Simulated scan of single mutants.
Amino acid sequence: MTVATGVGSYPGEDFDETLRLVLGELPDLPHLPELPARGPAATMTGRGLAVVAELGADLQPAGWRLTGSGPGLDHRRARSLLAQDLDALEERAEGLTGAFKIQVAGPWTLAATVERPRGDKVLGDRGARRELAQALAEGLRTHVADVRRRLPGVDRLVVQVDEPALAAVLDGRVPTASGFHQHRSVAHPEASAALEWVLEAAAEEGAEPWVHTCAPGTPLGLLRGAGARGLSVDLAVLSAADHDTLGEALERGETVALGVVPATDPAQDPTDAEVTESVLRWLDMLGLDPHEVGERLVLTPACGLAGATPGWVRRALPLLRAAAGHL
């Protein structure tokens, strides 16, 4: 059957309460919440660096920067915060069976948001971005194994690699530190190779690798070619080519997580019937039967919910679950 899940982020700073909400409202595919309001250690980049193996980082006024040596205080804090969240998950989700999802920033989003030791983005140095991607892949292996140990009853572990910056990386739209120029675009083969290292690391640990992006213009075929077995996208920004790629993915037994409710408070709440109808129209356009796609189709918010109010979050998750049930 079609199920519902979250993209990853939520508002507020109360992890335990958010985890309780996720486990209660998204029982078929719960996930590890991210609460960026807790500070830099809890943002997508901080969370990603907490997973990275071997490389050290610290926090500068301009943001996260690799140190060229050991982890700085804030990097250690990011790792400690992730460990605390996993401890809370292990306690609250004791006995959990079925499926579970974790998220991690992808190699190109990290390269576009983390600086080299001497400044400017990792993206500007081919060797540095290769090293960062490989360190992420190695750290992800350990992270997946740790989650599996903590959730022994879970037989389907999804690893969602978040790549909101990938389209800008490929198009040469990531600004340099000065802000007057942009970093050169990265060729598709190199972008695919770095993603492949990370997705393959997840798959080799027995997890199901997905890639999430809510940025328009991301080449979904590149993600599939790199090894993504699930694509998480925002329905509202899809192009004609995207529709074709997603339809092919569903036909080949891969997962599509479709963002169908707003990521921030709407002027008027949609009903579960309206959400269901929008998905049915999309499937009809692709020539697919909702009964045939089954659990390969997942409903999500359009993007992370960190910018939403807690009230909308409490309405959006049941709305997704109800629409998934109708399908």
Rank of each mutant, 00 (worst) to 15 (best):
Q84K: 08
Q84M: 02
D85F: 02
D85N: 08
D85Q: 11
D85S: 01
L86K: 09
L86H: 03
L89R: 05
E91R: 15
R92K: 09
R92W: 09
R92T: 11
A93M: 04
A93H: 09
A93E: 10
L96K: 10
T97R: 11
T97L: 04
G98N: 08
A99Y: 09
F100K: 00
K101L: 04
I102P: 13
Q103C: 03
V104T: 14
V104H: 00
A105H: 03
P107Q: 06
W108F: 00
W108P: 11
W108T: 15
L110N: 10
A111Q: 06
A111Y: 07
A112G: 08
V114E: 05
V114N: 05
G119W: 02
G119N: 06
D120M: 07
D120I: 07
D120A: 01
V122R: 07
D125G: 06
D125I: 00
R126D: 15
G127M: 04
A128S: 14
R129A: 06
E131P: 06
A133F: 12
A133R: 09
A133D: 12
A133Y: 11
Q134R: 15
Q134G: 09
L136K: 07
A137C: 03
A137I: 13
A137K: 03
E138V: 15
E138I: 12
G139A: 06
R141I: 03
R141V: 05
R141T: 14
T142L: 04
T142F: 03
H143K: 06
H143R: 02
V144N: 02
V144F: 07
A145R: 15
A145K: 07
D146C: 02
V147N: 12
V147G: 00
R149S: 15
G153R: 07
L157I: 14
L157Q: 11
L157Y: 14
V159E: 14
V159Q: 01
V161S: 12
V161K: 04
D162Y: 10
D162K: 02
E163W: 05
E163N: 09
A165C: 13
A165S: 13
L166N: 10
L166Q: 07
A168T: 13
A168I: 09
V169I: 12
L170M: 09
D171W: 12
G172C: 02
G172V: 14
V174R: 03
T176V: 10
